[in-house]
Design a protein around this nucleic acid. Structure first.
Length: 801
DNA sequence: CCAGTCGCTATTTTT
DNA sequence: TAGCGACTGG
């Protein structure tokens, strides 16, 4: 994350303008590698040095990592004799919003102790909302949630959605309403609520707004291209005075699916009239061919704000486009090249492998492990996604928030306490009827129709919960780890998990994960909680009140809530450890803001990048192109861009088309290496067997078909390639699978596959004809007789066999 | 109530 | 492939 520019002693004229900007609005358009982080931190340091009290400065980022780095660098930049770094708020948007809501819970319409629901919890709530509304089938929880999210990011209530109201809109509004009801019943908010509620509160409550406007005289927003409408409104309300500097790059906007609104940056000057615009186009990171290639790619986007990119570094090597046989070959080849780089003296930590989807990491991990190369996969939430860790957290969340029925449901019978589905439903029904949380009703379970045994068990469990809650509210904050330990012990979770660990022979050490969780609690108390939250630390009056004992010291319950909140807001990128001497593997999204001497991008195929689900409209396709641009511009000197002729997707081997983005690269700045040879696609549908040997080539008795990629590219309706054994399964799955890229349906075919032709109708494949350049099939049609068809041209649709 | 099995489906990215 | 939900038998 260290910018190359940070090592150069002086600022460019443009950078200086940005650093020296004081009052009024400014938009810094910071191209990749333009020294953005440096500009931001130096500007903060400078504001402080010219006498602006640090507590009047608010800097917002999107990840904890970025916030941490910014804090550290401001620290380093502010002269030590200046006392005044105190109270500076550098926070993620999410943490900032959550903290404000916690401080003003009642004003926001929340009960203290509210929790932030993660994606799984959200799905749970939505599932119930769908069931309650009596409309299952039509809606998947994920689909409904993304609609609701869209509305929330645009600050639309269910009523607004109705008003917009066609049939579909009304259905969504109903689910939205039901979903909100579920959240409220659990005393929970989702990620989007953080902003929606904060924006609403700031709008509604003038005194609060004034408090913020007067406190934060200087507002700074990093990665501004990623802000959504709600966040924009928050920034505008706080920065009513107009002293706001936003820094971003529309070409690196990759969070549209999360509601990021490109208009925020494209129309900044309208929102803040008189704003100064400072373009930073000079790239201090990458050598010239890399910059030229990336620039050539991004120019294909229409909706952008062009800025010239330039670099003063030398030409360097051209990006290499690798064409591989399949994902194993691709991984081996990338690893081989990384090894070559290492031999030339580049440390492992200076290398990264980037991919569009997490699923692609596995093959790479295998290849790296086999070669004994150290690597780290950047996935911040991975630890908290483990079953035993989620269970432990669910217990703690119930302690922190008695209304959390979603978490309670998760752990009420883990370990088994004889409280199955039926008992839980009875408990929930009774709780609902009395308007009480389920946890409160456990003690009187005998009165509501549970069997005697279940009632006894429920009462015991209720006792446990009460004890923990009492412990939490009486103990001091430092006792948080003891509380966690007590819960793990007394719930029986530790015993259960230890037993499971012993049973699984080569499974991972689940018990150790629980210990790890306890350590995390200890760390949190010692490192983060001790400093108070972002508003505490900066609010002198409060700090003094705390010191003098006027305000009661915080309890383990407060600590627990704060910890759970921080856990809910970890980002994948937060897991990155740049110090580790290891190759870094991560998604393109996680790679934003980082840089490495050597970068390899894999899976550059239609359907992967651009992703098949992101091709429904041109705007999404442009976002995919930006994603590719972000990946390329992470590279300082060496850039490898690999794609494969076939790839295993959902256990099925598919032929693949080279990504359109590779074709858009300016030919003068790219070197192409075709490792798949003349025999292009190696098609074999027998996959799903054990691990493949390394360096796999098309010589394992598989049929080798040529798939003229020129013919495939951008063409609609072309059907797939042929298969050998196992074709039945392949054909079926391919026919049912949503297309990998518009029109280019890559179906598997075998003798016997049923196909449909737009003119000839339905027929059965009789023979596969692997003719070089024009793989064909002979099909016996029911009506039209036997025809020989070139797969790439005939609009064949593969049917169920 | 629970464990096991079968079959279906697969939003990709993340706070 | 894998994870989840529905179903079944003990």
């Amino acid at each position: 994350m260290t910018s190359a520019a940070s090592h150069s002693p002086s600022l460019t004229a443009a950078q200086r303008r940005a650093v020296e900007h004081v009052d009024g609005a400014a938009l810094v358009l910071a191209g990749p590698g333009s020294g953005k982080t440096r500009v931001i931190t130096q500007r903060i340091a400078r504001l402080i040095s010219i006498g602006v009290p640090a507590w009047q400065i608010l800097a917002l980022t999107f990840t904890n990592k970025a916030a941490g780095e910014m804090r550290a660098r401001v620290d380093a930049a502010v002269p030590k004799d200046v006392q005044g770094r105190r109270g500076l708020v550098v926070s993620t948007f999410h943490t900032f919003a959550a903290t404000v809501l916690r401080h003003h819970a009642e004003r926001a319409g929340l009960k203290p102790g509210f929790v932030i629901f993660d994606t799984a919890d959200q799905r749970d709530c939505m599932k119930r909302a769908i069931a309650d509304a009596g409309m299952p089938g039509r809606w998947t929880p994920a689909g409904a949630l993304s609609e609701v999210s869209r509305l929330k990011n645009a600050l639309k209530s269910p009523e607004d959605a109705v008003a917009a109201g066609d049939f579909r809109g009304r259905a969504i509004a109903r689910l939205y309403e039901g979903y909100q009801r579920e959240l409220a019943a659990n005393n929970a908010v989702d990620f989007d609520d953080l902003f929606m509620m904060l924006a609403a509160m700031l709008r509604r409550d003038e005194s609060l707004r004034r408090e913020f406007t007067e406190r934060f005289r200087y507002v700074l927003v990093d990665e501004y291209q990623d802000t959504n409408h709600a966040q924009f409104v928050i920034v505008r309300l706080i920065a009513e005075h107009g002293n706001v500097m936003v820094v971003g790059d529309p070409d690196q906007s990759i969070y549209g699916w999360r509601g990021a609104d490109l208009r925020n940056i494209l129309e900044f000057e309208q929102a803040f009239p008189g704003a100064v615009v400072i373009p930073l186009g000079e790239n201090f990171r990458s050598t010239a061919h890399i910059v030229a290639a990336a620039d050539g790619l991004i120019r294909h986007n229409r909706r952008r704000r062009h800025k010239d990119l330039s670099t003063s570094l030398g030409d360097g090597a051209m990006p290499v486009v690798l064409r591989c046989i399949d994902e194993h070959h691709e991984a081996d080849e990338v690893v081989r090249r990384l090894r070559d780089c290492e031999r030339t003296g580049i440390a492992w930590r200076g290398m990264a492998v980037l991919y569009r989807i997490n699923a692609l990491s596995r093959v790479l991990e295998d290849a790296l492990r086999r070669d004994g190369i150290p690597y780290q996969v950047v996935r911040g939430t991975a630890f908290f996604d483990r079953r035993e860790v989620k269970d432990a957290l669910a217990y703690l969340r119930v302690v922190a928030n008695a209304a959390d029925a979603v978490s309670l449901r998760r752990i009420i019978n883990v370990p088994a306490r004889g409280l199955g589905e039926t008992s839980v439903e009875r408990l929930e029904a009774a709780a609902k009827a009395r308007g009480m949380p389920v946890t409160e009703i456990l003690a009187s379970a005998g009165l509501i129709g549970l069997t005697a045994r279940a009632a006894k068990s429920a009462a015991q469990f209720g006792d446990l919960l009460r004890r923990w809650r009492e412990l939490a509210s009486k103990a001091e904050a430092a006792a948080l780890p003891d509380l966690v330990a007590a819960v793990l012990e007394e719930s029986g979770l530790r015993t259960l998990v230890t037993a499971q660990t012993a049973e699984e022979i080569d499974g991972e050490d689940r018990a150790a994960n629980l210990v790890e969780l306890e350590n995390a609690a200890t760390d949190f108390i010692q490192e983060r909680f001790a400093q108070g939250d972002i508003l505490d630390a900066s609010d002198r009056a409060r700090a003094e009140a705390l010191a003098s004992g006027e305000v009661p010291p915080r309890t383990a319950l407060d600590a627990l809530r704060a910890w759970l909140e921080s856990v809910a807001l970890v980002a994948d990128a937060d897991a990155l450890d740049p110090e580790r001497g290891a190759v870094t593997l991560m998604t393109l999204h996680a790679a934003k803001g980082l840089e490495y001497p050597v970068v390899a991008m894999v899976g550059l195929e239609e359907g992967v990048l651009p992703h098949a689900r992101a091709l429904e409209n041109p705007e999404e396709a442009e976002e995919e192109r930006r994603l590719c641009f972000v990946g390329m511009t992470r590279a300082e000197r060496t850039l490898i861009m690999a794609h494969s002729a076939t790839r295993l997707v959902h256990g099925m081997r598919n032929a693949c088309i080279e990504s359109r983005f590779l074709r858009e690269l300016p030919v003068d700045h790219v070197e192409r290496v075709d490792l798949a040879g003349d025999a292009i696609g190696s098609i074999g549908f027998d996959d799903g067997g054990g691990p493949r040997g390394r360096g796999r080539r098309a010589d394992e008795g598989e049929r080798v078909f040529r798939v003229g990629s020129d013919d495939w590219y951008g063409r609609g309706g072309g059907a797939g390639t042929a298969g050998s054994r196992g074709g039945r399964q392949g054909a079926r799955a391919a026919a049912l699978r949503p297309g990998l890229g518009a029109g280019a349906t890559l179906a598997g075919m075998a003798v016997g596959t049923m196909v449909r032709h737009p003119i000839f109708g339905i027929g059965r494949v009789q023979e596969l004809l692997p003719r070089a350049g024009a793989p064909s099939v002979r099909v016996a049609f029911n009506e039209a007789g036997v025809k020989t068809l070139v797969i790439a041209y005939a609009k064949l649709e593969v049917l169920r066999r």
